[in-house]
């Protein structure tokens, strides 16, 4: 535990404001009841609980919230969101935290979640549909574990569960949609 002196304690409200701008959720409504921590199925893998994460956002402790693994180990199961007595969409706040970390290009303890997200979105942009074999194959290559999950993969092939030929849907429409979305994002950033 880090001991800090009374005079060092400050509150930076800009983080909570940034989150609110991103997703419309007001983190300051959180009164630390710990219901989200109690229900979180993935708590045991996290550096700290979702309740603590909410407090870090309230206090403006950017490093703890953005770089530690809690936000990145959220499985988006929506248990916290469903149970929050203050009706905060906590899972959405966590999505916003992940997006802010991405925008700032921060190095974070994210496992390989970011890699998967990025590959997925790239694939979607050019193919329109998810190509599972291609996604997992590329992911394994990028993360340096080309033989990851080979045993299960082999079984799935034998059972005819994998589709090897991707179905490509409206690639030009998709690319246009993605670039228009990017433009809107940039426009908003410039306006603020």
């Amino acid at each position: 535990m880090k001991i800090i002196g009374e005079n060092e304690i400050t509150v930076d409200a800009s983080f909570a404001k940034e989150i609110q701008k991103h997703c419309g959720e007001n983190v300051n409504l959180c009164y630390q009841c710990r219901k989200c921590a109690a229900g979180c199925p993935n708590r045991q893998f996290m550096d700290f609980t979702p309740t603590e994460l909410m407090r870090y956002v309230q206090l403006g402790m950017f490093d703890e919230a953005l770089k530690k693994n809690t936000a990145w180990f959220c499985v988006s199961c929506q248990t916290c969101t469903a149970r929050c007595p203050q009706d905060i969409d906590i899972a959405r706040v966590i999505d916003a935290i992940r997006m802010i970390a991405d925008e700032r290009r921060l190095v974070a303890d994210a496992g390989n979640v970011r890699v998967l997200n990025r590959l997925w979105m790239i694939m979607l942009r050019f193919m329109g549909r998810m190509y599972e074999v291609g996604l997992v194959g590329t992911f394994n290559m990028v993360t340096g574990k080309p033989f990851n999950d080979m045993a299960l993969g082999k079984k799935m092939i034998l059972k005819g569960k994998l589709k090897f030929i991707p179905s490509i849907k409206m690639p030009f429409t998709m690319m246009k949609m993605f670039s228009r979305a990017k433009k809107i994002k940039e426009r908003k950033k410039a306006n603020s």
Partner: peptide
């Protein structure tokens, strides 16, 4: 087309 699933709401609100 794909709904975007988790990766979409993880990294692109719009």
């Amino acid at each position: 087309i794909c709904c975007g699933s988790s990766p979409a709401h993880h990294c692109d609100e719009l």
